[in-house]
């Protein structure tokens, strides 16, 4: 169900601007990895490079290699849509499809995959919503618009939509930054639960969150504006937050940075 991600010397560009500079890291299956660092240091760019969402933007490109269980996802023969089905993504702001009901939102990915049978869709919707800790709140109003839910519920709906297609890896780009503390806690609980099934990589600005949920933490930083982001340190979360090797990491997590 979960797969290992290996990045080696990944550099991503927007046109001629180099956003991240030769990032290498290995993410083990069924773990939560947190990426932290100041704004503009390339965490999100790196995350979006993992499921090839980076290249959606005009003139964006990438160098280096990214593999998922030893398959190169940037192989020219690889179908990019298959990569994105394998590596799901949850975005910073909840983005349910505004014209769809709660139910339709959850099964949107399955329908794209050609699943038509009502009973299969119904099952998947229920399972995914249960897995996203949302079922009890919405089971009586599945045909209501997804955008009518609260922000935290919408984000859990988006998580349900992402995991409904049974990906191997779930990427989360600051999934709680638009949410209140209670909704944030609900999502963090959810992450622990999902860890049994998926490899999770999360970008967060909230260091307590990184410390609470993740097994490993990567610290990104830039020297100055305009420079590419680099991975300064990548280690067990325990180690990063108690005894980091790099001075920069220590400065950042203790708040003596920027």
């Amino acid at each position: 169900m979960a797969k290992r991600i290996e990045a080696s010397n990944v550099s991503s560009y927007y046109g001629s601007f180099k956003a991240i500079d030769s990032i290498s890291m290995t993410v083990e299956p069924k773990t939560i990895t947190a990426l932290i660092g100041p704004s503009g240091c390339g965490k999100s760019t790196f995350l979006r490079s993992i499921n090839r969402m980076h290249e959606v933007l005009p003139n964006a490109r990438i160098e280096g290699s990214l593999t998922i269980d030893d398959q190169n996802i940037y192989d020219p023969d690889v179908d990019v849509t298959a990569v994105r089905r394998l590596i799901g993504m949850v975005f910073q702001r909840p983005n349910p499809f505004p014209t769809m009901s709660i139910y339709e939102n959850v099964v949107a990915g399955l329908k794209l995959n050609g699943v038509k049978k009502k009973s299969l869709l119904d099952d998947a919707a229920e399972q995914s919503l249960k897995a996203a800790n949302l079922w009890n709140e919405v089971k009586d109003r599945l045909s209501r618009p997804g955008a009518g839910l609260s922000g935290g519920q919408q984000q859990r709906l988006c998580i349900a939509r992402t995991i409904a297609v049974e990906p191997q890896v779930v990427l989360m780009d600051e999934p709680c930054s638009a949410l209140d503390p209670i909704s944030t806690l609900a999502i963090e609980d959810l992450m622990f639960k999902l860890k049994d099934r998926f490899t999770i990589i999360i970008v967060t600005h909230n260091m307590q969150q990184a410390a609470r949920v993740s097994d490993k933490t990567g610290f990104f930083s830039i020297d100055k504006t305009g420079d590419p982001g680099r991975l300064i340190e990548y280690d067990d979360t325990q180690k990063i937050f108690s005894n980091p090797t790099e001075k920069k990491t220590e400065d950042y997590i203790t708040g003596r940075f920027g």
Binding site: M53, A82, V83, R84, R85, M89, F91, N95, A108, G109
Partner: peptide, 11 residues
């Protein structure tokens, strides 16, 4: 963000 949601689902 809705377009990206669709693309990220493998559309």
């Amino acid at each position: 963000m809705n377009e990206e949601a669709a693309l990220a689902l493998g559309a």
